[in-house]
């Protein structure tokens, strides 16, 4: 271990508390029983689809589109997931096929 047990525990605790705090903030502002302002209720309703959109971009954030393989494994596997899901609407099928395809693409093709 590069640092002492005490220091290790302190670091773990600080990291844990900081991350918990980011997840806790909205609940601090709006504890149980407090009437939600209409704009917050509205945001709560429309945010999830926007967040999912943001997370998709987040997953692709490190892909290099400017040089080989030009993000092709991600684009191909991603397109297959979307099309397969639009066709069959089976969560496990879309995720399973897309993931295996991506693994084949990055390991054996590109």
């Amino acid at each position: 271990m590069p640092v002492s047990v005490g220091k290790t525990l302190a670091i773990i605790f600080v990291v844990s508390a900081t991350i918990f705090f980011t997840r806790l903030i909205p609940f601090l502002f709006f504890p149980n029983g407090k009437e939600l302002p209409p704009v917050i209720r509205y945001l709560g309703r429309v945010l999830p689809p926007a967040v999912i959109g943001m997370l998709v971009i987040y997953c692709f954030k490190s892909v290099e589109f400017t040089h080989a393989p030009f993000g092709l494994p991600e684009l191909i596997a991603g397109a297959v997931v979307v099309l397969l899901h639009a066709w069959k609407r089976n969560n496990m099928l879309s995720i399973g096929v897309g993931t295996v395809l991506y693994m084949v693409l990055v390991q054996a093709v590109f």
Binding site: P49, L55, C59, A77, V81, V82, H85, G98, T99, L105
Partner: peptide, 17 residues
């Protein structure tokens, strides 16, 4: 290598759904 694409696929599935 690449199995973490399952997470990307999960988000894509939710978006498509």
């Amino acid at each position: 290598t690449g199995i973490d694409f399952a997470m990307t696929a999960l988000f894509l599935v939710i978006l498509t759904e």
